[in-house]
Design a protein around this nucleic acid. Structure first.
Lengths: 246, 246
DNA sequence: CAGCTCATGTGAACGACCTTTACATGAGCC
DNA sequence: GGCTCATGTAAAGGTCGTTCACATGAGCTG
């Protein structure tokens, strides 16, 4: 009863039957525990109850396993960002921030994936499928930025959506890397990573001239083009984005 | 002539004389080549021309060597940020952006240090000296943010300097991690990482209500409190921060 | 200068890991 | 029933990290 998933040799035939999947799961668990650096091919094999050479029937080498995990990570990442974006409902800015929070949530809740994706040293271009998955995930952010850019208040130059997307990505990734991972780089913060990122994005959006005072639009339509205080006067929401949360 | 720095056993006595330093240098080179993950204790020893056991006279284990390098990295980092900040000359915003560029420059020009500091998995608190060096480096950013916050246009709530510092740090780190390192995560960009970060910071500062149109102040004193277009009207600098650079 | 001491370096050894190679097993198909 | 080929095993080679007993010699003490 102590060995949960260590499918005992006796209990299965010579063939495992589902080794590739078992190895991926085992590796995921190990990476979550000890980081991608500490994860070991031999350990994954042991955990799946096979010999150390067996994994080589399914992965060229250790790096390929890692890269497979990173790929899966990007796929799940894409799914979560897509769900968070929810096609811009109920309004673009709200949905956009939800994407930011989803980014952090993913980093927090799926440390193994996040580690494999961004901290394992696996080059994005090591595997075409990995590269494609990574691009699909980024495209969610990009598409959201596109919608946001289209809302730029008239009278101001429209910011390039690609640039906005890269900016938001870098903010989310920076906050996640520096402050939102359990293991390394935990520094004392005056606020939670979520709040930190939310304020950062709000200030940034305000810098682009977007109305950023939270208040759901009356209907499903986008809010009227330019609420008077959005880009004129000292139109700072009461307390500002960093006002005492909650 | 093929072995450059492999101080041959014959050419030196039994004692190396400067092994600790030689190991640090060797490790730095190896990390630059193959990343902190690929760097090997044995290799460093070989490169210094000593046996594999010799390094243990100077470092408890491999991790301590890594942590020493990270510490040195933060010290040099601090020095460069300090120089870039130059005590806020010629004006706070200009100096502040120079700090951002210095951050990226360090990531680009000292990949080995950057790797050891942020990507090697060395916990910041593994070594008190490392932790202290890291905090000193961050304090430069924090001090700069402090000065910047003090310039907040009157009539707007003053942003917490700590928060600003964390925001700027996360932007710089995000851009550096995602786009500014040769090895991993090189994606195609419509602009250089430097330009990307500069625009990001400018937009952010504008979101806080700072005047961000580049124009050195008349004298060494800070510019007059609030140029009329700073926080009113649709006062967007011609072209915006992302206008065609140069 | 003789002799002592202790920091520093050596060699050998252990166990863990990654990877390859020759061989074993058995599931699916004729 | 027998073949075949994907899948798994055992054994072996090479590299690492790390430890331990031992060697060396720089610098001090007298």
């Amino acid at each position: 009863m102590s060995w949960r998933k260590e499918t005992r040799r006796a209990e299965r035939g010579y063939h495992h039957g589902n080794l590739k999947e078992a190895l991926l799961q085992a590796a995921l668990g190990l990476i979550a525990e000890k980081g991608a650096a500490g994860f070991t091919f031999a350990d994954a094999a042991r955990m799946a109850g096979v010999s150390a050479a067996a994994p080589y029937r399914h992965f060229r080498d250790r790096d390929e396993l890692l890269s497979s995990i990173a790929q899966r990570g990007f796929e799940q990442f894409e799914a979560r960002l897509t769900a968070a974006w929810d096609d811009g409902r109920p309004d673009t800015v709200t949905a956009f921030e939800r994407v930011g929070r989803a980014y952090l949530a993913f980093a927090r809740e799926e440390p193994a994936f996040y580690n494999a994706m961004f901290e394992s040293g696996v080059p994005v271009d090591s595997n075409p499928a990995l590269q494609a998955a990574s691009e699909r995930a980024f495209n969610i952010i990009r598409a959201a930025a596109e919608r946001l850019a289209a809302l730029a208040p008239p009278g101001t130059p429209r910011p390039p959506a690609m640039m906005m997307a890269l900016h938001i990505w870098s903010m989310a990734h920076g906050v996640a890397s520096l402050f939102s991972r359990g293991d390394a780089a935990r520094r004392k913060l005056p606020m939670s990573p979520d709040e930190l990122l939310e304020a950062e994005v709000l200030i940034y959006l305000r810098g682009l001239g977007f109305p950023t005072d939270r208040r759901p639009p009356a209907k499903s339509a986008e809010p009227p083009p330019v609420p008077p205080e959005a880009s004129s006067g000292s139109g700072v929401p009461p307390g500002g984005p960093w006002g005492k949360p909650k």
